[in-house]
Structure formats: structure tokens, C-alpha cells
């Protein structure tokens, strides 16, 4: 008789797999910059892979790097791996657009724990990553 698989009720990824969260642009739109960064880092530190439909603004990316650095610790969190497609039309938004927050930052973004995700291949149209269990 097959044994029942142990279940994991606390929402954290169990031994049997890696959890992937796809977060819509609509959901991120409702959050302040620091809330977005917190959401991403909490998920990644839990061993989850986060995929953002719309990505982050350059300012948010800069803060994400800064906060990530402050949370790295030996034998624990070693940081994150992040991949986006290169933006195809850089620097086309005007300064006014940027001040008004009309900058287009729509770019699919994949973020995961540095010790579990490895980018195998990346070009303008394809990101290929290998995800391992802890």
C-alpha cells in the first residue's frame, strides 16, 4: 500500500518542490516601492521563485540591491539572482514622463535565491534558468 505523502500546511515549500509565485502588474501597482521590495525579499528568502509581470522601476531595482545586501548573512541568505529581458528601447521616455511616473518599466522579471537559481542562457528573447531545491 502506498504511503501517504507528507503534506505541508504552512505554505512554505516542502522538500518535494520549489514554489513559484507569478505576481501580476495589477497586484504590484497597489504597493509602495518598499512594500514591493519586502514582498520579493520575503518570498526569495523563503526559497520561492518570484516572477513579476511588470518588473520594477530602476529606482526600485537600486533599492532592491541595497536592501538585499543588508540582509545577506553567512550560512543563510546569499543574495538573489534576477533576470529581465534587456529593454528594447532604452532612454526613450522623457524626463517629464519619468517625473510623472509615466516611465514604462514593463518587463517580465524573474527573481530567486542566488543559491537555488542559475541562469543557463539569456538573450533578448529567452531566459533559461535552472532551479534546484535547497
Amino acid at each position: 500500500m502506498p504511503e501517504a505523502k507528507p503534506t505541508n500546511n504552512d505554505g512554505a515549500p516542502g522538500d518535494e518542490g520549489v514554489q513559484i509565485d507569478l505576481i501580476s502588474g495589477a497586484r504590484m501597482d497597489g504597493l509602495a516601492s518598499m512594500e514591493k521590495i519586502r514582498l520579493i525579499l520575503d518570498s526569495v528568502r523563503d526559497g520561492k521563485i518570484v516572477i513579476l509581470e511588470d518588473g520594477l522601476s530602476p529606482e526600485e531595482e537600486s533599492r532592491l540591491i541595497e536592501v538585499t545586501m543588508s540582509e545577506i548573512n553567512p550560512d543563510g541568505f546569499t543574495g538573489l539572482e534576477i533576470e529581465t529581458y534587456p529593454s528594447t528601447k532604452p532612454a526613450t521616455t522623457s524626463l517629464l514622463d519619468r517625473i510623472m511616473g509615466r516611465e514604462s518599466t514593463k518587463k517580465l522579471t524573474v527573481i530567486g535565491p542566488a543559491n537555488q537559481i542559475e541562469t543557463l542562457h539569456k538573450d533578448e528573447t529567452l531566459i533559461s534558468a535552472l532551479v534546484s531545491r535547497k
Binding site: S57, P58, E59, E61, S62, I65, E81, I82, E83, T84, P86, S87, P90, A91, L95, R98, E103, T119, K122, D123
Partner: peptide, 17 residues
């Protein structure tokens, strides 16, 4: 040169003009 860190940093620099 085609790394995420380079892309992000150049993007941040551009966004600050």
C-alpha cells in the same frame, strides 16, 4: 557584458539622467 547587473545599473544611471 550582457549581464543583469550591468543592465540594471545602466538603467538606474539613465533614469537619473
Amino acid at each position: 557584458p550582457f549581464t543583469q547587473v550591468n543592465t540594471m545599473l545602466i538603467g538606474i544611471i539613465e533614469s537619473r539622467d
